[in-house]
Design a binder for these strands. Structure first.
Lengths: 144, 144
DNA sequence: CTTATAACTGATACTTAGTATCATGTCAGA
DNA sequence: TCTGACATGATACTAAGTATCAGTTATAAG
């Protein structure tokens, strides 16, 4: 059973319907690069409505199929989610996104909880930098 | 010398001018709650142009006077910045925002740098939870 | 295999956040 | 006080997302 079928199954399990449009959007999503916008998706599916794709992205966020990435410029993109809690390491040159979940924010969170008396329920962490490929490229660039 | 004067000084030092509008916007900013939107500011200054306030917010971000807060719903608000690098602890009930800078993300960052060969240049961390006040309130609430 | 209906769709219009343009106004240095 | 670069406000625009609504379709009950 393919990943797409799994998503379909999760949809029906939640009382949602499997439609041709949803199938087509999902097909496009898996072919997308590291991160994308709704308009990227729409460009590949000109006959699908804007609202439909936005509705679907919200659905897929609930289902943990996609998540949002906060870019360094403050804009939010979408991306296929690895299952469960994770964070993003974003290359600010090529835009590549890597996940990591071995985040030891937990100790920080405990520390915070103790010092502030907050009941911590979640966190959002994005790390920005430059991937090895982009660093290598800069080494060979002229103007660098 | 007041905080506002300090900001003015920083503006002139960077070659910007002190205008009546800027003074008025700054006055409003310091009277704002924990976080706010540009429209919150505009409501208090109906005769100031939208673009002007947005321009000013960008300027003030450069000057480290304000920063942006990512709310749990994904919307971005502004807030007066504590000087320098820090993160936000946001109460999802009352919206209160606290800063913390004793973040030991540095060890995490080092770990990431080693395992991914990224050159890490920055990070964004927001922690969500419920402050002690809101937790206490829930204890007394009926429907809880 | 029908059929009823709740869910889905696309169009449209709207909202919110922010940017671009441009003619007018004004700060601040010479 | 003059002057030009900087700042302003109006306007129009873009981008991201939501609301509404009439028409379509999946699906499950009969």
């Amino acid at each position: 059973m393919s990943d797409l079928d799994l998503v379909m199954q999760r949809l029906t399990m939640r009382g949602h319907r499997i439609t041709e449009t949803r199938r087509r959007v999902l097909d496009v999503l898996v072919s997308m690069p590291a991160h994308f916008t709704v308009d990227d998706v729409l460009r590949q599916l000109p006959d699908v409505g804007r609202a439909t794709v936005f509705r679907m992205m919200k659905l897929l966020q609930d289902l943990n199929v996609v998540c949002r990435v906060l870019m360094e410029d403050g804009s939010l993109h979408y991306r296929l989610s690895t299952r469960g809690h994770h964070h993003h390491l974003v290359c600010r040159d090529c835009g590549k996104v890597e996940d990591f979940s071995n985040c030891d924010v937990s100790s920080l969170v405990q520390q915070l909880a103790a010092s502030t008396e907050y009941e911590i329920e979640g966190h959002w962490l994005e790390v920005y930098g430059r991937c090895s490929t982009c660093r290598a490229l800069e080494g060979t660039a002229v103007g660098a």
